[in-house]
């Protein structure tokens, strides 16, 4: 429908692809998780642009689900994977 919006979406694609480099490098699991957050926001933007570009309003709903899942992923990661079990002693404090 509109080539312009598709072009905008294509411009955003490198932002995600370059972000993959951070997953490769790490160093901590959290750094990799930040990239997942990038996928959330950038992915939503790409879907919104494509929704207008392809004239397909269903993509708006997919963007909505994407936004919801990005938040859930981070929270699950923090609670289950990275943080381990239970409450830990208060760590680093201001010198």
């Amino acid at each position: 429908m509109s080539w312009m919006h598709t072009l905008f979406a294509l411009i955003l694609l490198p932002a995600i692809i370059v972000g993959l480099f951070r997953i490769l490098r790490g160093p901590t699991a959290a750094d990799r998780m930040v990239t997942a957050q990038l996928f959330g926001t950038c992915g939503v933007a790409i879907l919104l642009l494509l929704s207008t570009g392809m004239g397909n309003p269903v993509l708006l709903d997919i963007a909505l689900v994407f936004a919801l899942l990005a938040a859930l992923t981070t929270m699950t990661f923090i609670r289950r994977t990275w943080h381990g079990s239970g409450k830990k002693k208060h760590g680093y404090s201001i010198p």
Partner: peptide, 24 residues
């Protein structure tokens, strides 16, 4: 959608930062 992303990303940002602090 924007509001949702706003809430989600600020909350997960705080969560990641807090966990990083607690992990020293």
């Amino acid at each position: 959608i924007w509001l949702l992303v706003l809430i989600a990303s600020s909350a997960s940002c705080h969560l990641i930062a807090r966990s990083a602090m607690q992990k020293n």
